[in-house]
């Protein structure tokens, strides 16, 4: 239940909530029991944020047209690291038209 509620929120909300909990804990204004509950919530949010950050799987793709009138397809391409330069062997179309 709790998990689902977090899932619905987006990353930014979760991060904001985590910040809020951390500063609340820091202020020491909550009772110990409340602190523990909040801490658990915070840990869950942090976990969620980390998962979200790692969700994407480094991938560089390019759309290439097939036959006229049909929708294009993805094609994964490799690049030389750091420079962002495309591999010279790649043969790619310059546009979708």
């Amino acid at each position: 239940m709790e998990k689902k509620q977090i899932e619905k929120k987006n990353f930014e909300d979760a991060l904001f909530k985590l910040e809020e909990i951390a500063s609340k804990l820091e202020s020491g204004e909550m009772g110990l029991e409340e602190s523990i509950t909040n801490y658990e919530k915070g840990m869950e949010l942090a976990k969620y944020c980390r998962e979200k950050l790692d969700e994407a799987e480094r991938k560089i793709e390019i759309l290439q047209k097939t036959k006229k009138g049909e929708k294009p397809v993805k094609k994964e391409i490799t690049i030389k690291d750091d420079t962002g330069e495309l591999d010279e062997n790649e043969e790619i179309q310059g546009s979708l038209l």
Binding site: A56, R58, I60, E61, I62, L63, Q64, P72, G94
Partner: peptide, 18 residues
């Protein structure tokens, strides 16, 4: 590509050529 991969190494990029 350079900037994106530096900032967010596991980003997924889809280029629509034009």
């Amino acid at each position: 590509l350079k900037v994106a991969l530096r900032r967010y190494p596991n980003i997924e990029i889809l280029l629509a050529p034009a």
